[in-house]
């Protein structure tokens, strides 16, 4: 079942530049457990799209299977959505993007969906630098099948049933950096102040933007001893930097200290303002990003914020040199070479 929100809107709700209220970016009511981290992430996506003045119909949202993959129903109700097959959202998103490169694509996945069954597609969509936002709602367990450990569960993390996970975790964000993702961030579902600007920056990034969001499972993995519980994560996060997203149209008024602060210009002219907290870290240097993550992990900390960004890499459409207009709008004139060409080809086969 999905439950519709009431269509009634208060006439005085604030509107964004396009005339949409924040409620226009919401979807149906969530059927996830009360307190689920995923709902906070959905809310952050709604907030980010509202603030970014995104036209809802210019966004397509795609997902795989699992609790996280149910969330696209709960945001951007006016956008087309595609809840595909377990672990296969990246390929569907790739095909969709090939058909129409002018839309924005948001992919939502979970740790089971991306780090286990979908690992093959996860790594290859990164390699191709598909122009999309890829959010993993990472809770370290399989919620929808009642709490089995996932491949991102930390060694020694205790499940609700009391068993200790004996296997090494897969660190999706480190992996994304290693594979050449052009935007990699990590965040916590409980940190909206950080998550919203990260999503906005990811949506403006031209290329593959990955955000790994630790998102506690309140029902199956929020117990003492779990390393993906609200309490544990709050106690162990360390941010790379504070982040402000300044859309390209806005006037910059704040004064920044050039010593510890960095500005990154995105392709459309928007600015990312970072106030660095981590030492020896440069978000435009892959090696320093990877090393900052390693260091944090060795101290038992979860490094959050923007980890790495590269605004210069070619995305998939640029790599394959496809025409700027959407392939799905080409007609017979563009696509069919006609009978004369075919007759000539036949001559060469006689």
């Amino acid at each position: 079942m999905s439950f519709q929100r009431p269509l009634f809107r208060h006439p005085n709700l604030p509107k964004n530049e396009l005339g949409f209220a924040k409620a226009d970016y919401e979807g149906t009511l969530s059927t996830l457990c009360a307190g689920c981290g995923h709902d906070s992430i959905s809310a952050a996506i709604v907030q980010a799209c509202y603030e970014l003045n995104v036209e809802p119909h210019r966004v397509a949202k795609l997902s795989g299977i699992g609790c996280s993959s149910k969330t696209p129903t709960y945001f951007l109700g006016n956008s087309h959505g595609f809840n595909s097959v377990h672990g296969r959202m990246p390929s569907v998103a790739t095909g969709a993007s090939m058909a129409n490169r002018t839309l924005k694509y948001i992919g939502v996945s979970g740790d089971g969906d991306s780090a286990s069954i979908g690992m093959g597609q996860f790594v290859h969509v990164i390699r191709r630098n598909l122009n999309m936002v890829y959010i993993v709602m990472n809770n370290g367990c399989y919620g929808l099948t009642k709490g089995q450990d996932s491949a991102t569960a930390d060694v020694g993390s205790k499940s609700k049933a009391g068993s200790i996970n004996p296997f090494q975790p897969i660190d999706l964000a480190s992996m994304a950096i290693e594979l050449g993702a052009t935007f990699v961030a990590q965040s916590f579902s409980g940190d909206k102040r950080q998550l919203v600007p990260l999503i906005k920056a990811a949506m403006d990034h031209r290329g593959f933007a990955f955000i790994n969001v630790i998102s506690p499972c309140v029902t199956f993995n929020n117990n003492v001893g779990s390393t993906k519980s609200y309490d544990y994560v709050r106690d162990h996060i360390e941010a790379t930097a504070t982040i402000d997203f300044v859309p390209h149209a806005e006037e910059i008024t704040a004064q920044y200290d050039p010593g510890t602060e960095t500005e990154i210009t995105l392709h459309d002219g928007s600015l990312l303002h970072l106030k660095k907290l981590a030492n020896d870290w440069d978000p435009m240097d892959r090696i320093s990003a990877a090393s900052a993550m390693q260091k944090a992990r060795s101290k038992g900390q979860i490094l959050t914020g923007l980890l790495y960004i590269n605004e210069d890499a070619k995305n998939l459409h640029e790599t394959i040199e496809s025409v700027p207009s959407p392939l799905n709008q080409l007609d017979e004139t563009d696509l069919c070479p006609g009978s004369a060409v075919l007759d000539d080809l036949m001559m060469s086969l006689r």
Partner: peptide
């Protein structure tokens, strides 16, 4: 594609989007 699963996924994604 990386395998036939992905190949068919791409085809379906493009078909869904009208190509």
């Amino acid at each position: 594609a990386e395998d036939e699963l992905a190949a068919m996924g791409m085809v379906i994604g493009a078909g869904w989007n009208g190509a």
